[in-house]
Design a protein around this nucleic acid. Structure first.
Length: 423
RNA sequence: GGAGAAAUGGCAGAGUGGUCGAAUGCACCGGUCUUGAAAACCGGCGAGGGUCACACCUCCGGGGGUUCGAAUCCCUCUUUCUCCGCCA
């Protein structure tokens, strides 16, 4: 959520920046500024009425105490009008605040200056490529065929138990997945992150806090009986742990990691791009969340990118890094780097990690602040990234490590899997 | 699931209708003293809105109500604790 005072001061600059997202902010900014003006003037009027009625109340109290009941009752009569007035002003204030909030909730974050303009993923900017694309044998298969051939993942069984998009992993498929989870968590802990286990359902306030609500309402599974939402990513519970907190500069940076399943309705997805593990309703992910001082957030973003690079290097997978263009940038993000793994058998790139700096956009919604060394209160910056999303990494390993003899296991994972080939 | 009790500042804990944003202690910050530290003493010390700065307003788990006036009374929700029941 943007800060109103900043919209007021940087209106033209922000409009230009949001244009990179193809978001025309000029009208909504006018509404916001107008509503804020109304809000403040209403507040001032209300304060005056309340001050007067507080003053009279005290007077009445003193008159009663000194036994001057008649005088007191006379003063009482004066309060009736004030009461009515304060009620009207309170109602106006509340409706103004709600309208303002509603506008603010629907304005996306200001993209960082390095974000390229663009409409879709076509316009993302590739900034780094690494790893060798392996030369596979003639009969190479996509991962869904491999999963069937070696009995690693049963999609039909998932359809039977739940529905499309809920695969069942079995045998070495399940063990490889579990190995990856543990390996990722270990790498994150090694880098200084603290591991958490968090709830998989969250309340509405948490959904608003990290920005899934109201922007992505239809993407989350909603448990209506209890008004709870299945998490689309552990970013939601991890970041919301700090909702409303006033931290000290000694508490920062806060570095959290968690493994959780993620649930996404993926309404509107279809076709070949959702085949196999490419897009699921339930998938596993290990996530990183950072809360840092504003001055450090871009350095931390770079560290997170380096961290993910380190993991992919150890797994010896071919990948590239994209700087997302304005049109592809998430609602809450100021700058996002996507990691994409090259799927040799499918001959396409698969997104496996997304690392973002939200600056103070989430922190302002969540009201996560800290007292800096001068004792001033400031919003923190929040960042998160996947390290990593499981299914597509699994798909990439299956496809890139396939040989006529079977699927080799990346060396670094063998201590975790306990086997070095799937055959 | 049933019965009862409770929710106050970072923590502990007073306050049961009027000048209470709230005693006191601990913690924390600054100062005096000390070679330095501790102790002792002095001072400061919740959050939000608003203002150039004050003033002023709001907040005692959340929401609603009674009243001229609510931390205090009423309703409701949530959470915690104790006892009983059930249970991986």
């Amino acid at each position: 959520m943007l800060i109103v005072a900043q919209i007021r001061e940087n209106k033209e600059k922000f409009i230009a920046a949001l244009a990179k997202r193809n978001f025309d902010a000029s009208a909504i900014f006018e509404e916001v500024l107008q509503l804020d003006e109304t809000r403040r003037s209403t507040q001032t009027q209300l304060d005056k009425v309340l001050a007067e009625s507080n003053r009279l109340s005290k007077e009445i109290g003193m008159l009663f105490k000194s036994g001057e009941h008649q005088k007191a009752n006379k003063v009482k009569e004066q309060t009736a009008g004030l009461k009515e007035e304060s009620k009207q002003l309170t109602d106006l204030l509340q409706s103004t605040q709600e309208a303002l909030q509603e506008r603010l909730y629907n304005i996306p974050n200001i993209p960082h200056e390095s974000v390229p303009a663009g409409k879709s993923e076509e316009d993302n900017e590739c900034i780094f490529t690494a790893g060798e694309v392996p030369q596979l044998h003639e009969d190479k298969l996509p991962h869904w065929e491999l999963a069937k051939k070696y009995d690693l993942i049963d999609f039909e069984l998932g359809n039977k138990v739940t529905g499309a998009g809920f695969p069942i992993y079995k045998g070495k498929g399940a063990r490889l997945q579990r190995a990856l989870i543990t390996y990722f968590l270990d790498k994150n802990i090694e880098a200084g992150y603290t591991e958490y286990q968090v709830p998989l359902v969250v309340n509405e306030a948490s959904g608003y806090g990290t920005g899934q609500l109201p922007d992505k309402e239809g993407q989350m599974y909603h448990v209506q009986n209890d008004d709870l939402y299945l998490i689309p990513t552990s970013e939601v519970p991890l970041t919301n742990m700090f909702r409303g907190d006033l931290l000290t500069d000694k508490d920062l940076p806060i570095q959290c990691t968690a493994f959780t399943p993620c649930f996404r309705r993926e309404a509107g997805s279809y076709g070949a791009h959702v085949r196999g593990l490419n897009r699921l309703h339930q998938f596993d992910k290990v996530e990183l969340v950072n809360l840092v001082k504003p001055s450090e957030s871009y350095a931390v973003l770079d560290q997170m990118v380096e961290h993910v690079k380190g993991i992919l290097k150890e797994l010896k997978l071919p990948y590239r890094i994209l700087r997302l263009c304005g049109g592809d940038l998430g609602f809450t993000s100021a700058l996002t780097y996507d990691f994409e793994l090259f799927s040799t058998a499918q001959d396409r790139w698969l997104e496996i990690s997304s690392v973002s700096n939200f600056e103070d956009f989430q922190a302002n919604r969540l009201k996560v602040r800290y007292k800096n060394s001068q004792g001033e209160k400031e919003l923190v910056h929040t960042l998160n990234g996947s390290s990593l999303a499981l299914p597509r990494v699994l798909a990439g390993i299956l496809e890139n490590y396939q040989t006529p003899e079977g699927i080799k296991i990346p060396e670094v994972l063998v201590p975790y899997t306990g086997f070095d080939i799937i055959d």
